[in-house]
Amino acid sequence: MFRNNYDNDSVTFSPQGRIFQVEYASEAVKQGSVVVGIVSKTHAVLVALKRNAEELSSYQKKVIAIDEHLGLALAGLASDARVLSNFMKQQSLSSRLTYGRAIPLERLVSSIGDRAQTNTQHYGKRPYGVGLLVAGVDETGPHLFEFQPSGMTQEMVACAIGARSQMARTYLERNLEKFADAGREELVKHGLAALKESLAQDKELTVENCSVGVVGVRAEGAKAIEAFKLYDGMEVKQWVDLVAEGNETAEGGMEVDS
């Protein structure tokens, strides 16, 4: 029987130049429940689907606030995300202490990217088993970044990762042009609509299983920011109800795959 000998550790290239351990780590991301991020000219939002282990248990934490100006959503191993988010909190705080400046997002995201890369080049380490969407604002406006276990980080206009996230990405691609000029509320609604696309057949969005994170600037190009805020439970009811009404989005006429 064929056996892949090249997938035992992250320091072995396959003859095709692939590193299987890293590819397997990205499979762990797909085991996590779906999270969506979208960015406009003024805001960046994160929307997440939470899972609970059983009926009577609590729901998992999917969105983490890092600093006043940014937060992240995770899909995959939550404990890996906690290690990375703690590191990000330290970096962010250290920038505020030494320079009196909110850390530029690209730099923060690259710093975890570099950390993750190290784990793919040294024996005895394993790649992180988590994908992140990092949303925030800095001097240059709102941003959304995707982080992958390979250490790859990319700036996105919109993104979805986690289980069945392809459906959400399809929704995002179809509505891509609408995001840039969308208002804060509209952006959240698009996020939830994308999330809904990825739901399993017997599931629906409820106040229990939705998390929303919002951060932005007060106006396009403005310095004053609207700090990152995480909405949970009844705080998301307004949005969940809106999206739950039939299959309509804000503008109506959402395309539905069947």
């Binding site: 990319q154 700036e155 996105m156 206009v157 990405r169 691609e173």
Partner: peptide
């Protein structure tokens, strides 16, 4: 690799 990438960034 994806339409969702921000053009001109990265």
């Amino acid at each position: 690799t994806s339409k969702l990438l921000k053009p001109g960034a990265n």
